[in-house]
Simulated assay, not measured.
Amino acid sequence: MNKGLNITNVLKTVNSAYERFDKDACLHSLQVAYLTLKICKNMDMDEDTKNSLVIAAYFHDFSAEKQICVIH
């Protein structure tokens, strides 16, 4: 039994909450992550690097969203 954190479940949960907050920003994050995945596959990157880059791509605008919330 794997007792570690399942990153897929974490990302699904975060995405669900993010989508309720801002659907357009959520879609943008998913698109950037998908494009990153395609690039990584074309570059034949190892799984750990690919996973890290896709996750980073998905979260790349989260700090901007936080700043928007604080301003409004």
Rank of each mutant, 00 (worst) to 15 (best):
M1N: 08
M1C: 03
N2Y: 10
N2I: 04
N2E: 04
N2L: 08
K3L: 13
G4H: 03
G4T: 06
L5Y: 07
L5E: 07
L5I: 14
L5A: 01
N6I: 14
N6S: 12
N6D: 15
I7D: 08
I7C: 07
N9R: 06
N9D: 15
V10G: 06
L11N: 03
L11D: 01
L11I: 09
K12T: 14
K12P: 10
K12M: 15
T13H: 00
V14W: 00
V14Y: 02
V14G: 04
V14E: 01
N15G: 15
N15K: 11
S16M: 01
S16G: 11
S16K: 12
A17Y: 05
Y18K: 06
Y18Q: 05
R20S: 03
R20W: 02
R20M: 04
F21L: 13
D22S: 12
D22C: 07
D22R: 02
K23M: 11
K23F: 11
D24P: 01
A25M: 05
A25Q: 05
C26Y: 02
C26H: 05
C26G: 02
L27K: 10
L27G: 02
H28G: 06
H28C: 08
H28M: 10
S29R: 02
S29N: 06
L30C: 10
L30Y: 03
Q31K: 15
Q31Y: 13
V32D: 02
A33T: 00
Y34A: 11
Y34F: 11
T36I: 06
T36W: 11
T36P: 13
T36Y: 12
L37K: 12
L37A: 11
K38W: 00
I39T: 11
I39G: 05
C40T: 07
K41E: 10
K41I: 00
N42L: 13
N42G: 15
N42I: 12
M43V: 13
M43A: 13
D44E: 07
D44K: 12
M45R: 07
M45K: 10
M45Y: 07
M45S: 07
E47I: 07
E47R: 08
E47H: 06
E47Y: 08
E47G: 01
D48P: 00
D48S: 10
D48K: 13
D48R: 12
K50A: 13
N51H: 13
S52C: 11
S52D: 14
L53F: 14
L53G: 05
L53P: 04
V54T: 00
V54E: 12
I55R: 00
A56R: 03
A56M: 07
A57Y: 05
Y58A: 10
Y58D: 03
Y58T: 03
F59L: 14
F59N: 06
F59Q: 05
H60Q: 05
H60N: 09
H60T: 00
H60Y: 05
D61G: 04
D61A: 06
D61S: 08
F62G: 04
F62V: 08
S63I: 06
A64P: 00
A64F: 04
A64R: 01
A64C: 04
A64V: 03
Q67I: 14
Q67H: 11
I68L: 15
C69Y: 13
V70W: 07
V70F: 08
I71T: 14
I71L: 15
H72N: 14
H72Y: 11
H72W: 08
H72V: 01
